[in-house]
């Protein structure tokens, strides 16, 4: 009985935290809410038969999946969207029903509880800390891993008699480019030294003549010989 009330209190706390709307808090709150739902489902399905903590944990965990999957299908079948509000309503409904059933059940004798030595908690905390360090190491390794640098060159379709040349720098450092745009082979616009900061995008607008067949944009690194490293081309779709 106490366990049921505690679980309901946990559920209420999760709802309050979710209502705050803070992203840092909403994630853990959602997980707590789902865990509370699982715990209540487990206590309703197996009130007395399986007092073993780990068996009840298995049942509760499985029922979380079952409730969410079948609940999601039910929402979809009812024509409701699977969004936050409807999920919240479904979980609150499940918890309310389970809570009522659990509270009305005749409470059996309490399961024999063995005290867990303090040393176990210390060791468990140490293991959890190590796991967190491992996760941190892995994330740090992924963030600092060497990446193959590249630059994106794009050329838009004409809009309002002009095309847009785009450059995005993924070279890992600020870069200076030479950009040349040719219409039907003739140089129409050029930017001999465009500096694009790392991770940033640069665009250039080129007005087209009234008649044209094709537009080509070429990019080269200004520190290299003027051999284009990237090239894009579009053809006039209104040509007969």
């Amino acid at each position: 009985m106490v366990r049921v009330w505690l679980t309901l209190a946990l559920m209420a706390t999760s709802l309050l935290l979710l209502a705050q709307g803070m992203p840092v808090v909403s994630g853990p709150a959602a997980l707590l809410m789902v865990a509370a739902m699982g715990a209540l489902l487990g206590s309703v399905i197996v009130p007395l038969r399986l007092p073993e903590r780990w068996e009840r944990a298995a049942v509760s965990l499985a029922l979380v999946f079952v409730a969410l999957v079948l609940g999601g299908l039910a929402l979809s079948t009812a024509g409701l969207l699977l969004n936050g509000r409807n999920w919240l309503g479904l979980i609150v409904l499940i918890v309310a029903v389970c809570g009522v059933i659990a509270l009305r059940e005749r409470a059996g004798p309490a399961a024999r509880q063995r005290s867990i030595p303090g040393g176990v908690w210390l060791l468990a905390g140490l293991a959890a800390t190590q796991a967190a360090v491992a996760a941190g190491l892995s994330v740090a390794g992924a963030l600092t891993a060497p990446q193959t640098p590249f630059t994106q060159l794009t050329l838009s379709q004409p809009v309002g008699g002009a095309v847009i040349v785009g450059l995005t720098n993924h070279e890992g450092s600020d870069e200076t480019y030479a950009v040349v745009v040719r219409v039907d082979g003739a140089e129409t616009a050029s930017w001999p030294a465009v500096t694009v900061p790392r991770g940033e995008r640069w665009t250039g607008r080129v007005t087209l003549p009234s008649t044209w067949q094709n537009v080509t944009a070429q990019v080269s690194r200004s520190r290299e010989a003027a051999v284009p490293s990237l090239q894009t081309t579009i053809w006039n779709r209104n040509l007969e």
């Binding site: 867990i116 030595p117 040393g119 060791l123 140490l126 293991a127 959890a128 360090v133």
Partner: peptide, 18 residues
């Protein structure tokens, strides 16, 4: 004692994950 053995093993596991 309950849990002491597996908790000890968990510490080794944590180090292994590192």
């Amino acid at each position: 004692a309950l849990g002491l053995g597996v908790a000890s093993v968990a510490v080794i596991t944590g180090a292994a994950l590192c």
